[in-house]
Design a protein around this nucleic acid. Structure first.
Length: 225
DNA sequence: AACGTGTCCAACCGCCTGGTA
DNA sequence: CTACCAGGCGGTTGGACACGT
């Protein structure tokens, strides 16, 4: 283990059970969980954690598996298409992240929630601030809103309106981006994050993921979702 | 180069809901 | 009806990294 992103053991100081581990998962724990599910499939998470010999709660195991270790999970850049889909589905269903995630193969509810909170929410807040100082271009905005919330045809919430504004800005950016230069018009990054959106700071993690890719290519694991 | 600040995201907690015995 | 459990969700935290000064 190196010190850059330490796979340290953080036994929870306020946990009742001193045997229960918390914090970042170690490579060993990941492999135990992967191997166990490969051999036995998913099951009742609490008993799975015990049977596998992991000193984790079932909930923690489930979260780790669903959000990170699943073979089909996609980490990293939300594509423009996915961004549009998220906006449309959120306009339809609100904060039903798992429901939205079902329509984005490989994406997790946690990732979509994080995306929404860090990107859309930020944009919405900025819109709210600007609202005090200037009038919106309502005509253009409403046109986009109608497109976005077409499926729901419900009332247009503040969030939906602001999210539609985001989508509008998104469209403008991409049209400009495609037609002209790679000039950045949009206030927030729509293209890949720094580091490709994945925190993979060290060679150790690189080798781990190489191993995991190899693992999944070898093992035909039956998963049930 | 060093420091401060902001951003992203994995992971957690607490609460809620739905299913089932 | 009640109790229990698994899963879902919102809110939050803390570490790593990027960026500005």
């Amino acid at each position: 283990m190196d010190g850059k992103r330490p796979y340290f053991l953080t036994s929870c100081s306020h946990s009742v059970d001193p045997e229960v581990r918390k914090g970042p998962w170690t490579m060993e724990e990941d492999l135990i969980l992967i191997n166990y599910i490969a051999n036995h499939g998913e099951g009742i998470w609490n008993s799975l954690a015990k049977s596998a010999g992991l000193k984790r709660t079932g909930k923690s195991c489930r979260l780790r598996w669903l959000n990170y270790l699943r073979p089909d999970v996609r980490r990293g850049n939300i594509t423009p298409e996915e961004q549009m889909l998220i906006l449309q589905l959120h306009a339809k269903w609100g904060n039903r992240w798992s429901k939205i995630a079902k329509h984005l193969p490989g994406r997790t509810d946690n990732e979509i929630k994080n995306f929404w909170r860090t990107r859309i929410q930020k944009y919405i807040n900025k819109q709210d601030e600007n609202h005090h100082h200037q009038q919106q271009d309502d005509t253009q905005l409403m046109t986009t809103c109608k497109q976005v919330s077409q499926a729901s045809s419900s009332q247009m919430s503040t969030t939906t309106t602001a999210a539609s504004s985001y989508l509008n800005a998104f469209d403008n950016h991409h049209h400009h981006h495609q037609a002209n230069s790679p000039q950045q018009l949009f206030p927030y990054p729509l293209e890949p994050y720094p580091n490709g959106g994945i925190i993979m700071p060290d060679d150790l993690n690189d080798s781990m993921w190489n191993n995991m890719e190899e693992f999944w290519s070898i093992n035909a694991v039956s998963t049930h979702y």
